[in-house]
């Protein structure tokens, strides 16, 4: 049953999202968006979806927030011509259309037929999947196909970002050089946060085998540790043609494809033998976490750029 807390939280999520979408100031909008993501993670907790809450907090709020902040500061430095406000008629039309979509959805919610869902089927198969966390079982085993393609989507996005590099900068260090004041907040955080994030990230990957957590959540926290270290100027970003980096980017997806092909030869695609499933899943999850962490961090660093005059 919904408590007043649920009502207040839903309302707050909507209000914060409205500030993020409608607010005038760009920086504030991004900050509101991050707050929105964290509150949404709370909503997921209330819906008993702890794995989603972790993913939303780490990826939806944290990583997307960093991406937006970095993009905003770069846009600001480029001083692009201001975009003129759209015609009032267009805005009114958009408002009416959006309100109609929301109204339609609200009307549709009570009319939807009730479904029993798939949790009974998942629970039945759970002992054979090699993990005690049903979400991990679905992600890596029962619906491994989705996750395999998802890791390829991550790589494709990184390739897309890298293609935006100019010939003259390729292959260099990813992104631009970061310099911070040695006594500044970021430099301090850059020393304190990464060790903590490293422990939390590895723990999240490991614990995904039997409790909420997993490669995506843990990998994102590991990526965050790396991002903070680089942004604080304590470590340079890697060169995009670095062999270790390339190996890290590809390890998870390649292991996934190898498992899929091996399964195909033995039985059918992405079917793990139950007696070895636990070991296979654990190894796969570890490699995936490394690849996800590397890919997400490289997405934040961006394509190699002109570093002359900025490199310390």
């Amino acid at each position: 049953m919904a408590t007043p807390f649920d009502l207040a939280l839903s309302l707050l999520v909507l209000v914060i999202a409205a500030f993020a979408v409608l607010g005038r100031h760009g920086f504030m909008a991004v900050v509101f968006f991050i707050t929105f993501g964290l509150l949404l993670a709370l909503a997921w907790l209330r819906l008993d979806a702890v794995d989603v809450a972790l993913a939303e907090a780490a990826i939806g709020a944290g990583l997307t927030g960093v991406l937006l902040l970095v993009a905003r500061s770069r846009l600001k430095a480029l001083e692009p011509p201001l975009a003129p406000a759209p015609h009032p008629v267009l805005r009114a039309g958009a408002g009416v259309g959006a309100a109609a979509v929301t109204t339609g959805l609200v009307l549709a919610i009570p009319a939807l037929p009730l479904s029993t869902g798939l949790q009974a089927e998942v629970m039945e198969q759970l002992p054979l999947t090699g993990t005690d966390n049903p979400v991990t079982a679905v992600l890596l085993n029962l619906r491994g196909w989705d996750t395999l393609l998802e890791t390829l989507v991550l790589l494709a996005a990184l390739l897309g970002v890298w293609t935006l590099a100019r010939e003259i900068d390729w292959p260099g260090r990813a992104g631009r050089a970061h310099r911070t004041r040695p006594d500044g907040v970021l430099a301090q955080f850059g020393r304190v946060l990464p060790p903590l994030a490293l422990v939390i990230g590895v723990y999240l990957v490991w614990v995904g085998g039997h409790r909420p957590g997993g490669a995506f959540q843990g990998g994102t926290v590991l990526a965050a540790a790396w991002i903070v270290t680089v942004m604080a100027g304590l470590l340079p970003a890697p060169r995009v043609d670095d062999r270790t980096l390339r190996t890290a980017l590809l390890a998870g997806p390649v292991a996934f494809v190898v498992l899929a092909v091996a399964g195909l030869l033995a039985d059918s695609v992405l079917v793990f033998p139950p007696d070895r499933a636990k070991l296979l899943l654990l190894g796969l999850e570890a490699l995936l976490a490394v690849s996800i962490a590397a890919t997400l961090a490289m997405l934040v660093f961006g394509a190699p750029e002109d570093r002359s005059g900025r490199d310390p």
């Binding site: 949790q119 998802e150 989507v153 934040v300």
Partner: peptide, 26 residues
Amino acid sequence: YADPVPQAMIITGIVVAVSATALALA
């Protein structure tokens, strides 16, 4: 308890969304 299948799909969706966002911002 919460159905794990939609949860897994949503986690996949969140990761795909952040990939697309990174590319769009670049």
